[in-house]
């Protein structure tokens, strides 16, 4: 099995270095000849090809098989889409990986059969949001846009402490699915009383998450 990395500068270099260290065969395809000379010096064991990796005639010369891994890393979504479609339809690679620059394109890529995508913009946006959240909040499933799952830790002064679940003013588009109390999981009912130190597992629509935090923790 070989790993084909199409485009990408620093990401391609660091990925290649890591994969080579783990003993994989790595092929880098890049348009920029100068860049490739530099890469060739730094990555002695990699195969480096100069060419446009979103062009079928270039890819056809690389002896790609359906067992290989294919990763499209260029800064252009259109090139990543075309490259991974060729990988899938011409070479039979089941799950080519495509980098997506405009996160909105993710759904469109999926519809076209490219289901495995990575969006640096999304990853950074999540990392930034994590910093905006208070310490007591942990985002349990960071990658979903349709549903948010949080673990929220109750403190002495949290407004929800001492109340029954049915009394909480959380939005209708949210629910407390479980409470972790002293290492045990409790499935809460309406009359379950929230205690300090409880970790609430909360499901909500992302659009109402800030009001969920507000009603459980106070000002956010």
């Amino acid at each position: 099995m070989k790993v084909f990395l199409i485009g990408g500068r620093n990401i391609a270099y660091h990925l290649a270095r890591r994969l080579l260290n783990k003993g994989y065969q790595v092929v880098l395809v890049n348009k920029d000849e100068k860049l490739n000379e530099g890469l060739a010096k730094r990555l002695k064991k990699a195969i480096i090809i100069t060419g446009d990796g979103s062009k079928r005639h270039v890819l056809e010369q690389l002896e790609i098989t359906s067992k290989d891994l294919f990763v499209a890393l260029t800064p252009n979504d259109q090139d990543n889409l075309v490259a991974s479609l060729i990988a899938k339809r011409v070479f039979g690679i089941e799950n080519p990986l495509a980098l997506i620059n405009d996160p909105d394109n993710e759904a469109a890529f999926k519809k076209l059969g490219i289901g495995t995508t990575v969006s640096p913009t999304n990853i950074l946006a999540q990392a930034i949001e994590e910093r905006i959240f208070k310490e007591q909040i942990t985002n349990l499933i960071p990658s979903f846009e349709q549903i948010a799952v949080f673990q929220i830790e109750m403190e002495e002064q949290s407004p929800a402490v001492g109340k029954r679940v049915m009394e909480l003013a959380i939005p209708r588009e949210s629910v407390i699915g479980a409470i972790i109390r002293a290492g045990e999981a409790i499935i809460p009912r309406g009359d379950t009383i929230i205690k300090s130190g409880d970790k609430l597992i909360v499901l909500s629509k992302p659009t109402v998450q800030s009001s969920v935090f507000e009603s459980l923790l106070g000002e956010v």
Partner: peptide, 14 residues
């Protein structure tokens, strides 16, 4: 080319 392909495919499929 690739921009045209992507725009066309998304218009059609999405």
């Amino acid at each position: 080319d690739n921009t045209n392909i992507m725009t066309a495919l998304i218009s059609k499929e999405y």
